[in-house]
Write a protein that binds this DNA or RNA. Structure first.
Lengths: 338, 338
DNA sequence: GTGAAAGCGCTAACAC
DNA sequence: GTGTTAGCGCTTTCAC
């Protein structure tokens, strides 16, 4: 192997070495017909000897498509998004595309920077879990032909494909489940209200309460960041005072986790239904009742839709809503004290 | 905004519109000095009007570096790797690089395809959780200047940087912990023995047993795939028969999870120490005792090392080993029956 | 201060 | 069958 450090051989080098034209090398590399077996062999030898590998970036520049898509999410370290991510990757792989990944950490500014960086690399399409509340910055990209599918949360201020969970329905079902078990003072701990899913889940909760003729006092609801301190304070607020809640609906996996950690310190044990399933949830005592989403389904559906767009589907933007599933395991079936 | 569907404006278009030369546009776009404010303004107007965005792929082709790195792991959906992944992403971001991600699903062939695909895109460097047992295929790439750091498991058949957990030490510590609590027949359930970490943890287990003068019969050890059926069969085998184990060391998070799920079905409850921490581990009853790795530390260290290489560090390949940490929570402290 | 020409590594189009 | 030319969108070089 005649490899020179830091200098990659190009097709031109291979051509020189095999004493053929540049285009002949290109033909061999791309398995195009019209090359004598003998010539092809010479070329292949030269390729091995030089350690040549085609520069796909240059190739894509010429061809127009980059065979890559960008996945933009909130935090790849969160199990919910990592499972979603795996599904997107599988679909991309099936379509011969590579995947750029980036986490916005819930910062609109970072979402935008990453999206723009992906677009500057000319990804064919984007799968986005949005953090911002205004996606008009994407309009020029969309107009230029970059496909985009939003997942988990819809796009704001623009029309775009979206694949969402039925957050309203899920929260309604979880709340109704608690009501069915005799609870009347049910608390809701959710993420920051400007996050679409958080607002929707709050809505579902309110709808179920209203449908049962139950009032929702302000001191039954806590919306805010999902860090430990904030959730702890929220829990403290809802479970103390003259009329503590007898049951809780928690708005996502991080909140559920924090609440679970704090439960032992409470003077009593409220019933609990968590939005999002957790690994080990069934092994807790009592088992954790959840409203499960389908993160893999979200990712797969979004990626499928993206590649359909890339294949030329120009029908109007659509919103797909995936159902949630209530999984009773014990924590949500404790009966309310009289 | 004069955007034409599917046609992206180029610098040439911007130049025409602003009635300047191509190079002047380039200067403005890259904040290079030597342009009159007035001219720069004309250029900037044209950029906005046309919705121009620099094509970074073309730029990189010319510049040589792509400002992107490839992260190759086993399964992005696994919490261990997703946390590792987040750390790599943070470092890459700090260095102004984008991240390609791909999962090998433990298939050597897929690892190789993905690595080659990343190299064909001319990533500046690779962070690899290897699945294969022969990485000589990377030699031409390394010679050509692509940096590579292996993480979680070392490279095989080639010399390369590696960032690893102290698997031997961790397994030894976990086993010794069980021995200290009076257990003499301790079982080990590990991943497939060709996986480096699995073999190392088996070794640590054996070392601790030997140090305590305890025999290890073949029917105390089960190494194999981590799917439900295989782990269930292994557990069944170790806990039945004339001399069932009184304690178990499980070799990674997936195995621990499966064992935890099966425990209730056993006729007795063996003590348990799991390799890898799990979310909720402390909320189980009893709490799960683990030998915790530091996935974020692995990712961060590996990425740091990669960028040091990209910055010109040409010292010989090194292996960094991160310590594990035993976290007693109850499941590993139950005393052995006499 | 500005711009024309060459070239990064490849493919498309069209010779021969 | 094979090679030559042009050009993808940008930066580098060097002239004005």
């Amino acid at each position: 192997m005649t490899t020179q450090y830091g200098t990659r051989p190009t097709m031109k080098d291979v051509a020189a070495r095999a004493r053929v034209g540049l285009k002949t090398v290109s033909r061999v590399v791309n398995d195009e017909p019209g090359v004598t077996p003998a010539t092809a062999d010479r070329v292949r030898s030269a390729i091995t000897e030089l350690g040549f590998r085609r520069n796909d970036s240059a190739r894509m520049l010429r061809k127009g498509r980059t065979a890559s898509v960008g996945l933009l999410l909130e935090d790849i370290g969160d199990p919910f998004y990592s499972v979603l991510s795996r599904a997107v990757e599988a679909v991309a792989r099936f379509h011969g595309s590579l995947l750029f990944t980036g986490s916005s950490a819930e910062h609109p500014q970072r979402e935008r920077e990453l999206a723009m960086a992906f677009c500057a690399r000319r990804v064919d399409g984007l799968v986005i879990v949005p953090a911002g509340d205004d996606h008009r910055y994407l309009l020029p990209e969309l107009a230029a032909g970059t496909a985009a599918v939003f997942v988990d949360r819809p796009a704001e201020q623009i029309e775009a494909d979206a694949v969402l969970s039925d957050s309203v329905g899920g929260a309604r079902e979880g709340t109704a489940h608690l009501i069915r078990h005799g609870h009347r003072r049910i608390g809701f701990v959710g993420d920051q209200p400007q996050i679409h899913t958080a607002a929707e889940r709050l809505r579902g909760y309110r709808e179920a309460m209203a449908a049962a003729g139950l009032p929702v006092d302000p001191d039954q609801v806590a919306m805010g960041p999902t860090d430990q301190a904030t959730v702890a304070a929220a829990l403290e607020r809802l479970t103390s005072g003259p009329r503590p809640v007898t049951a809780l609906l928690t708005g996502n996996n991080r909140i559920t986790l924090e609440v679970l950690r704090r439960l032992p310190a409470l003077p009593y044990r409220p019933a609990l239904v968590g939005f999002d399933d957790l690994e080990l949830a069934e092994l807790l005592v009592p088992g954790l009742t959840v409203v499960a989403q389908d993160p893999a389904g979200l990712g797969r559906t979004a990626a499928d839709l993206l590649f359909r767009r890339l294949d030329g589907d120009t029908t109007p933007p659509r919103t797909v809503r995936l159902p949630t599933r209530l999984i009773p395991r014990g924590s949500g079936e404790t009966v309310a004290p009289r």
